[in-house]
Design a protein around this nucleic acid. Sequence first.
DNA 1: TTGAAAGCGATACCAT
DNA 2: ATGGTATCGCTTTCAA
Lengths: 332, 332
Amino acid sequence: MANIRDVAKKAGVSVATVSRVVNKNGYVKKSTLEKVNKAISELNYSPNAIAVSLNNKKTKTLGLILPDITNPFFPELAKAVEEVANQNGYTMILCNSNGLLEKEMEHIEMLERKYADGIILASDSYTEERLKGTDLPMVLLDRGVNPNHSSITANNFSGAVMATKHLLKQGCKKIAHIAGPKNVLTAVDRLKGYQSVVRDSNWYDGDLIIHANYNTKEAITATKKLLEMDSSIDGIFASNDLIAIGCLKAIRSIGWKVPDDIAVIGFDGISLTDLIIPQLSTIKQPVYEMGEAATKLLINEIEVGKKESLFKEFDVTLIHRESTDKRGEINE
Amino acid sequence: MANIRDVAKKAGVSVATVSRVVNKNGYVKKSTLEKVNKAISELNYSPNAIAVSLNNKKTKTLGLILPDITNPFFPELAKAVEEVANQNGYTMILCNSNGLLEKEMEHIEMLERKYADGIILASDSYTEERLKGTDLPMVLLDRGVNPNHSSITANNFSGAVMATKHLLKQGCKKIAHIAGPKNVLTAVDRLKGYQSVVRDSNWYDGDLIIHANYNTKEAITATKKLLEMDSSIDGIFASNDLIAIGCLKAIRSIGWKVPDDIAVIGFDGISLTDLIIPQLSTIKQPVYEMGEAATKLLINEIEVGKKESLFKEFDVTLIHRESTDKRGEINE
DNA sequence: TTGAAAGCGATACCAT
DNA sequence: ATGGTATCGCTTTCAA
């Protein structure tokens, strides 16, 4: 591949001049500009990004660290980040942490060594402590407010309130909650939302809450345990859609009917919820918008600089379908 | 961040020596080695990857170009690529092409400018023609054999044969096929497999084949059209799982029962097939293994060099479940 | 308006 | 066994 000196030689000018026309800065006489442009196109020249980066310490690269790309919630987020990044001339490095703090730190260090310009961190295992060393611009997803980094979240608390109230409205008399992991912020907020609604009901009992990881398999076990313990439960608010799907499977396996015997609602709004039978009611997060906002925020921080940490919270919406409503919206 | 000169100064040696200890090559006296290592850890030094890249023209970066990360088939592929890449010290840039040839070419050019070491291309719109300019190591996924690039595929033809025969074995008397796009190689092979099995049946008719894109929405329309045209169809082989799910939804909306009135089988084996009701029979591709193989092949080509284009085809397996079998394996 | 040359941070060859 | 220095490809002063 041709380099800047080849172009300079071909155009009969200095490399400095070529640099000026490539970057459209500094004074260049019209006629030389044309000569240079001609040489550039003839040699099919395009600047070596590595060399450019070595100078200005910018790589036009963003890192996206996720717990698990195979969790259906994240691909759409990744898509948003990638698209917005591309639109702004950035490229996205994808890192899977598998929820391991260890791996997460390795990824961050690697991104620093490669001089990524910034990081979007969507992590379960985040602890403020460990991020101290890093001075890379970083935007947090689904983490709480914190003085050092901007962050984007959905309104998990109010979503949980909406979900629980919806079950109540559908006539549920005893609502259980399958909560996510205790150390995951979103799970905690959703649990709090649930509790705020049902705490004062006469049927309420701490045993109605059971914890499970954000996946289908554990949710099946948890649901069975719950229903064996108390067969009068007639509504479940699951901390995310994958868990809710586990509920549905467990319920089906013991022969109960949804929503007649028991209603189920999830959280996230992954597209899966629309494909299963019965269609799953859920609280939808605006995933794409969140990814978009995070990326824009990060790029702004990189290019303009950061004055203060911003905290942006997105509203969620109730989507009621067959799993809670006898006459839900059925999108065939 | 400290650079190599800081370390050299602190250790009282030259940068050349520091470089030697960092790269563990050349002779270094034990005592100086210790001095240097001490300085390195005290300064928390780690080599600037950009500078290294400028020298050796290697960035330890791989590009993965996908049609669409939100298609559930791809996240697992991406995960495999990312993991294997990481294990070998590489980093993965994710690019979404949206199936647009245009975008794909832009991504390839960008990866070249950033000096990615190689590319894994999983693309619908690939044409040999357009790849001519590129001399980056590249491994193709789901593209046919071709002289210039190694490639990885699943055995789509024989999978389609298995799927179709399974429907026959379950007692289907008239099997339709919802094929994928005509220009997509996997779709074409699956269509051929279907045809090879049913071509000589007395009920066979070209009208039993209908094309749709690899998504649920179009499949719903296609299925309805098919069943309106010929209500004696009692089996559908869908070109992928997303299409098969569309079939299921369409069938449900007109009140037919699966598998009693009509059986459905898909292709790919995405995890979704296990979560829906009825559970979907499918032909499972070993996605993770395919991603793994592609990445290893690519890295080998990068580091060892390529002698010839390799063509590796993976076997697929039949997973029969409720959508075709009255007594399928029910994994609850 | 243009060019020469000093970096950016590392590697590797050539001396010593 | 160690050090000096040219080099990778580009940007950016400083002079002219």
